[in-house]
Design a protein around this nucleic acid. Sequence first.
DNA 1: CTGTTAGCGCGTTCAC
DNA 2: GTGAACGCGCTAACAG
Lengths: 335, 335
Amino acid sequence: MKPNRRVKLSDLASKLGLSTSTVSRALNDHPKIPTATKKRVQLLADELSYHPNPFAKGLLKQKTKTIGVLLPSFKLPFFVDITDNIQKELKSYGYNLIVTTTGKSLKDEKEAFWKMAKAHVDGIIAIINQDHEEVSFLNDILDEGIPIIFIDRVVESIDANYVLSDDFTGSYTAIDHLIKTGHKKILYLEGPENLSTSFYRTQGYLEALKDNQINDTNVLSCENVDEVKLKLQSCPSSYDAIACFNDYYAFEALEYLQAQKVQVPNQVSIIGFADEPLCKYTSPKLSTVAQPCEEIGKISVSNLLNEINSLQINQPTEFKTIKIPTTLKIRESCK
Amino acid sequence: MKPNRRVKLSDLASKLGLSTSTVSRALNDHPKIPTATKKRVQLLADELSYHPNPFAKGLLKQKTKTIGVLLPSFKLPFFVDITDNIQKELKSYGYNLIVTTTGKSLKDEKEAFWKMAKAHVDGIIAIINQDHEEVSFLNDILDEGIPIIFIDRVVESIDANYVLSDDFTGSYTAIDHLIKTGHKKILYLEGPENLSTSFYRTQGYLEALKDNQINDTNVLSCENVDEVKLKLQSCPSSYDAIACFNDYYAFEALEYLQAQKVQVPNQVSIIGFADEPLCKYTSPKLSTVAQPCEEIGKISVSNLLNEINSLQINQPTEFKTIKIPTTLKIRESCK
DNA sequence: CTGTTAGCGCGTTCAC
DNA sequence: GTGAACGCGCTAACAG
């Protein structure tokens, strides 16, 4: 392995008999450099595979062309999918990406944010954990001049930019579909208490029942997946459909029903939320509400980049909350 | 949002009536600075939440404390899992992580590698795509002084550091288990031709049969998942077990058999490879060979960091190939 | 023990 | 049109 000898501007300059500034200008397509010189410089640069040192540039410009993505874990395909789309979008703008998982604790999350701040990312896209009491550190980050876009989940106490999927309408539509296809008694498996997405999805359920003149609501709260089966056991099985906070809850419900020899979807329909890959691997395949990962990724990026640019010219921007529509995916688990 | 005012060394220095170098030394725990001064400096640094500018540092040290991870896609949980573990491990060493997906084409992969080179990562951990003819660009990267660890898949034509799961033994063990539990005729669904993992897994199958004095091999090659069902259709169904290149192949086989009203595992057992999350969502749950993501992550990191350090002191290292043992996970799809 | 100086590689004045 | 000189923030070398 050769010793690390990276070619720099001055190498090009001396080889070409020009000054570093001329070479720099040529490479940056400066108007006053003759095209011939530009070609000559570019040619040599390519030949020696010259890359400007990003640190020198970063130091000078105080811009890193890097944005940070925070997510709770790589374990949820939904998050990963969004990250993937963010990455693709960012790439088209010539930005780099640093990803960090935040774990579950407030401490980890805080650390992750500071890590991004230290790395001097130009902006952050974050999926935060369940709502915390203490969010002052987020304001600290914003104060450092690093714009943040929050994805998927709302932090009640903070005014900021959000890109969310329209959980309320998504849930509403799913429930409405169940009702319209003849289901009379729909059980709702509610998600964790302090999660904004959970709140809106439950609201969608309640509202859909109300709009269809069904007064008999039936909500079963489960803090996490492991509670689902337990809660179902102690619940009268007088439902003909189960709608769930997410697909994992739905899968637990499906397993529970199958263990009870209840036929899905003949006796009970099931519908999840998120359209995780697992939906296609269960039998019957899970109906669900698909969230628009691609849209979410794209819009977050374009918003963040806008924010960064406005910030640069010292033009304050208004915080926006964007909700992106979901899609109902009916598969085999609904009759 | 406040204008971007990051606190720097000179801010601390002037506030404390010291020179920047003293402050720098204090912060870096230089031996000749009195503890009292260190405390004082540290205190103010914390108060103003000072973070050294990584670009200034990078420019000086020519080290970025960042390593790059390349993977074909975020869609495969196995890759993501490894990435997650790499991230955790790296964190404990104070290193940052840049992740890029390489897509499927050689062009994308090349681009991704160069992107890492341009970002001046200190090293790269890569899962490359199916074996290419042209790998000169990898040598170019190595020539730039950036060490690379290849994970999971081997590039035949390049001598380098590898961290692999022991595909051969994993496959061998699975097949051996099937034989020992009474299966007489095992069909093997082989993976893509130009993938090293695929090659070794098939070898494991063949060797296990041979060692058990079974001469009647039965290999069905499928370039990708979509071919599985088609190939199975045109294959005599005289097998009592199907072993598969990976879990997705196994799932296709499962669906196929179930559509044919063949009982799994009573009539035919199925075993996959990789222990993807989907294994737990099928019914019956899929038996499989688990790959040690955590080990792979940890070992790649420690190897890479070693490599980086040796490189720094100009001490050439020998290329190593490390194979990490797999674990057989018998679930419901095997009798 | 601490301050001064220099320089990492680049882009951008400001001169010519 | 082009080059010389400066500075981004930091640390290492060199004084004192």
